[in-house]
Design a protein around this nucleic acid. Structure first.
Lengths: 162, 162
DNA sequence: GATCTAGAGTTGACGCGACAACTCTCCCGG
DNA sequence: CCGGGAGAGTTGTCGCGTCAACTCTAGATC
């Protein structure tokens, strides 16, 4: 019965349309972010996560956990953003590893303005395009998908800002 | 009225969950493709598009149009895939530009098997997770979003394989 | 207290994706 | 015949994202 054969043309088309919609939407939003705030989606995510920490410094591992990014990705991104002056790494131990990560003043300014602008774009391009029924169905599917695909992350948490 | 203020926390969470679900799903599928077929999502898209041309050679511009990829992206991808032996560029004019693109035997083999395997993964991870209601709502939203965000592409067309 | 190991972070390499600049050909008007 | 522009492809550059390899520290074990 459930022999899992490949897809019917109609199913392929569904899949293709869905992927295309996602891609167009995220592309549009990312372009807006770049155009209006001169930051990338990755920068936005990191800025917001640190912003939500409200001044407290975060560890790389925390960021990695909270964003669900590979640690090396966080590290690379921090390096780029340190160059741009958005974040700083402050050393703990005498000389070695164990850095804490915090926003610079510049980073705080960028985060604050980006949240406003990007939030507006999300509303215009996504939220406003949904009927109430679509919103609730899509929300339900998303939660269900996250629960299924993200075994860990059981309690509290909930945040991030892809 | 429609003063487009930024988002409420609840709206941010919706957005975040949705993005997260998308990312988890595409990550899962891409890993499956890499694991089972040793090809990337980009390679898959290109292979399938050429596969559907059923032996006919395609122009770079055609691929670009059909996949909705930047022409330079197509060109870079072709260069990588030529190295892997999946595609070949055949020259037209005496010496200059104007290349046609076709699959190699290796490319055809890879395309065929990838369609089976990846199709099955899509069914398992996506289609099977949808109730009929969710499926129809999501399909409707996708079509609506594509229509809104993709002004061109009015007639015929329809295909691709993100 | 010397060694072993687990954890935290970094680095390097490489493919993907976007953008801008460049090349070449072809065609068009003079 | 020649200069100029439009269209097709390519190339370079840089940021994003993943994987594997490496470094350093701190704790555990003997």
């Amino acid at each position: 019965m459930t022999e899992t054969r490949s897809l019917e043309p109609e199913e392929w088309e569904f899949w293709d349309t869905w992927m295309r919609a996602q891609r167009l939407l995220t592309r549009e939003l990312e372009r807006g972010l770049q155009r209006d705030c001169d930051i990338s989606k990755a920068e936005f995510s990191l800025l917001v996560t640190l912003w939500q920490a409200a001044g407290r410094e975060m560890r790389v591992g925390e960021l990695s956990e909270s964003l669900d990014w590979d640690k090396s990705r966080v590290s690379h991104q921090l390096t780029r953003m340190e160059k741009r002056g958005f974040v700083k790494r402050t050393q703990y131990g005498a000389d070695g590893r164990r850095a804490g990560v915090g926003l610079t003043a510049e980073g705080r300014r960028a985060a604050q303005s980006a949240v406003l602008v990007h939030g507006g774009n999300i509303r215009r391009h996504f939220l406003d395009s949904l009927t109430p029924e679509q919103a609730s169905v899509i929300r339900a599917w998303s939660e269900q998908a996250v629960a299924r695909l993200e075994p860990h992350r059981s309690e509290a948490a909930g945040d991030g800002a892809s």
